[in-house]
Amino acid sequence: MKLVLIPPQRDSTADWPERLMAEVPGLTVVRPPAEGAAAELATADAAYGVLPKELLEAAGRLKWLQAQQAGPPPGFYYPELVAHPLQVTNMRDTYTDHVATHTLALVLAMCRGLPRYLRDQQAAEWHPDWSPDAVVSLPDSTALVIGAGALGSEIGRLLDAFGCTVTGIDVRPSAKPGFEQVLPVEALDEQLPAADLVILTVPHTPDTEGMIDARRLKLFKSSAYFINVGRGPTVRLDALDAALENGQLGGAALDVFETEPLPPDHPLWRRPNVLITPHVAGVGPHEASRRYAVLLENCRRFIAGTELMNLVDKTKWF
Rank of each mutant, 00 (worst) to 15 (best):
W317R: 08
E80R: 12
P263M: 08
V145E: 00
T208N: 01
T94N: 08
G178R: 14
P184I: 11
P85E: 03
D140N: 13
G36W: 00
P184R: 11
D255E: 13
L296A: 04
E260H: 04
T94M: 09
A44G: 08
G284V: 07
H204Q: 07
P17Y: 06
S289Q: 13
L118W: 06
T43S: 02
A100G: 10
K53D: 14
V294M: 10
S153L: 04
E40I: 05
R116S: 11
R119N: 08
L62C: 02
I6C: 06
A44M: 01
L114S: 08
S223D: 09
I6M: 09
A134D: 11
D213L: 10
Q122D: 14
A109H: 06
Q122H: 12
V256Q: 02
D238R: 15
V24E: 11
D129W: 02
Q122E: 12
R231M: 09
E154H: 13
T234E: 04
L240W: 12
S174G: 15
G163N: 01
F226C: 03
T13E: 15
H204R: 06
D207R: 15
G232Q: 09
L5K: 05
H204W: 11
E154V: 06
F318S: 05
P264F: 00
T96P: 02
P74K: 14
D45H: 15
L217H: 02
V136F: 05
K176Q: 09
E18Q: 10
L56P: 00
A288T: 14
L151I: 13
L217M: 11
L200A: 03
P177E: 12
L20A: 02
A288K: 06
Y78P: 05
L56W: 01
A293C: 04
R290C: 08
A252S: 07
M211N: 09
V312P: 12
P285Y: 02
P32M: 12
F220C: 14
T43R: 11
V135F: 05
L311M: 13
Q191W: 07
N228D: 04
V88F: 09
D120P: 06
L55D: 00
T89N: 07
M211F: 12
G149C: 04
K218A: 14
A253T: 05
T28I: 04
Y77A: 09
I169L: 04
R216V: 01
L27W: 14
D238I: 05
Y77Q: 10
D189L: 04
A304K: 12
A243K: 06
K314P: 00
F302E: 13
E186R: 11
V182R: 03
A214I: 01
P8R: 13
P128R: 00
D97S: 15
A243D: 11
V88L: 09
L81E: 00
T165Q: 15
Q122W: 07
P79K: 08
D196G: 14
P132L: 01
V185R: 14
P263E: 11
N228R: 01
E190D: 15
Y77M: 11
V235R: 10
L5T: 04
P7I: 08
V280M: 14
Y117R: 02
C164W: 07
I146G: 07
